[in-house]
């Protein structure tokens, strides 16, 4: 008997499935949610460009998601995506990459893209560790954790990346976890639909290179913890730092309209072209 075929196989590069993520890894769930989101929006992959960097979660679009794909250098996917979006504003450009890429080595590109409010959707898969390279401390690793490069415990506090992106001026920002798949899926759709810079921080699990160091050995352990730690942003508002310690604030952190960067650039070009046309008396 032949195996059943998942309808979402239409959205992935089926010939290379199953993917190579570890058992219980959150990247597979993010890929699942993302393909569901794209299906739900009725987007044609010919209208999409997916950009990623270096790290496990960058494999979600590259190679697995079936669309035009740009698998870039470590930390730079947002900068590469900027070039794509400016030249092809009609395409939906989505960046999927990890916390190391987006908030670590590429943190500068993140805040500037948010400041410009360029119409990109950035889905940052935050597993709180450098997983692909073997479990080194990340800018998102909680303090006190032992990693391969903080063998005597991490003394740095982690970035709350979504809050940073709100402060930098993004149009749409949310945080969810791989446990909250239904709201995550819907949030991805809202992010893609929102014109301007959209950012979702997706708390995700790495049982292999993070979990086993902090006593969460399986994907299940992580999801249980995400469920416990999750706190709706509506409830978190007004709570003290102390109360929010060890909690994951989930939900939509901002959703606002602001002038969008690429449209503004094209407006200037149109104006300048028209001016020259006029100057030359309409000659070609």
């Amino acid at each position: 008997m032949s195996e059943p075929r998942h309808r979402l196989m239409d959205f992935v590069r089926e010939e290379i499935m199953p993917h190579r993520f570890c058992s219980g890894c959150g990247c597979g769930t993010v890929l699942n949610a993302f393909t569901n989101a794209v299906e739900g929006l009725g987007l044609d992959s010919a209208e999409m460009v997916c950009v990623s960097g270096i790290g496990c979660s960058s494999w979600i679009p590259s190679p697995y998601f079936r669309a035009d794909t740009l698998h870039t250098t470590h930390g730079r996917p947002i900068a590469f995506a900027t070039g794509v979006k400016i030249l092809r504003p009609d395409l939906t450009v989505v960046v999927i990459a990890g916390d190391g890429d987006v908030a670590g080595i590429g943190g500068n590109h993140l805040i500037h893209a948010a400041r410009r409010n360029i119409d990109l959707s950035v889905f940052m898969v935050n597993n709180m560790i450098y997983g692909m390279t073997g479990g080194q401390v990340a800018p998102t690793t909680p303090a006190g954790v032992v990693t391969t490069t903080t063998p005597h415990s991490n003394v740095e506090p982690p970035f709350r990346v979504a809050d940073l992106v709100v402060a930098a001026g993004a149009s749409y920002v949310a945080r969810w976890t791989t446990y909250h798949v239904f709201p995550l899926l819907e949030s991805m759709q809202n992010a893609i639909k929102r014109k301007g810079f959209s950012f979702i921080e997706i708390m995700s699990q790495c049982p292999e290179n993070y979990g086993r160091r902090i006593g969460l050995r399986t994907g299940i352990d992580f999801l249980k913890q995400f469920k416990e730690q999750a706190l709706r942003v509506e409830k978190a508002n007004g709570m003290s730092e102390e109360e929010l310690k060890d909690r994951i604030v989930i939900g939509k952190l901002c959703d606002k309209e602001r002038p969008e960067y690429v449209s503004e650039l094209h407006r200037i070009t149109r104006e300048q072209v028209d001016k020259l046309k006029k100057e030359m008396g309409g000659a070609a």
Partner: peptide, 28 residues
């Protein structure tokens, strides 16, 4: 812009180089 193109200033040279590669893949 008078010739229909677009010029941007990026946050650093790494980003500048990245952006022009991204643009090239759209045919620019």
């Amino acid at each position: 812009p008078k010739a229909g193109g677009i010029c941007i200033q990026m946050e650093d040279e790494l980003a500048s180089m990245a952006a022009i590669v991204g643009a090239a893949w759209t045919g620019a």
